[in-house]
Amino acid sequence: MRQLIIRRLLQTIPMLIFVSIACFAMVKLAPGDPVLSFVTPNMHAEDIERIRHNLGLDKPAYVQYLIWIKEILSGNLGYSLINHQPVLDQIVERLPATAGLMGVSIGLAFLLAIPLGLIAGANRNRWVDKLINLFSYIGISVPLFWLAMLLMYFFSVKLHWLPSMGMRTIGIHSVFDVIKHGILPCFVLAFGFLAVYVRYIRSSTIGQLKEDYVQIQYAFGSTKRTVLFRHVLKHVLLPVITLLGMSLADLVTGAIVTETVFSWPGIGSLGMTAVRGMDYPVIMGITLFSSVMLIVGNLVADILYGIADPRIKTRG
């Protein structure tokens, strides 16, 4: 087990180096010049050059890369080119909003997806399955921003039950208020996740139901319900672990579209602003941060897998 973890940790090093180079290169190659966001036409050419120099943007690309890496290793993700605040602070500041929103959404999605997926899989091609499938296809194909607008229109503008935007009523700092603001975005996000998860769990259930142990349980006289929820469920949870591991990155990167539509002050909307403003350090900071989380998520998933399914350990 320990070997597995160490090996996987070592494997992440080249991966991280690759990710850092790739995201640096992509941002570098993208059209647009960050200096432009400082420029107004009544600036003279020498002013522009002075700003470029002050920002260190006149140095060769590989030097800029090495400086960046060196700073990252000492815990400094750099400063935003736009508002000059430390990137790490900005990410950390927005982390709770994003983690809360995504955590609840993903959790909710899983809680609903597991029974729905099991039922759909067990009743393959019957009306329950078709109904669940219909919903999950709708969830996959409906653009979330559209769903968001629709819900906002009904629940905020028409019914006045829920606020349409933001995370807080201005000046009010209570948990209840945040929850009230979170209901709509959570629902939208959970709906999107749910649709995908249900499909996974359904097909996994179908696969499991063909296994010998299921037949044996039936032969022993177990009811369908016991087989499904006591035995099949355990096996179905295996792919769910992988899904969870991958969702860990979502947990910190947030949802760009949904956060923007609801003006939710998370990392997704931070990233959106950074991309608009060609804010290199922030874009790279978020990319790197989420890559690390994705890698960690996969690592955790692997370890959990090992615990849940001992065959992997021996093979690993």
């Binding site: 921003f145 349409s164 935007m165 923007t260 539509v261 003006s263 002050p265 959106m272 602003t273």
Partner: peptide
């Protein structure tokens, strides 16, 4: 109030 999406801000 910071509202990045025009449509939702109109609502």
């Amino acid at each position: 109030r910071i509202a990045k999406d025009t449509n939702s801000a109109n609502l």
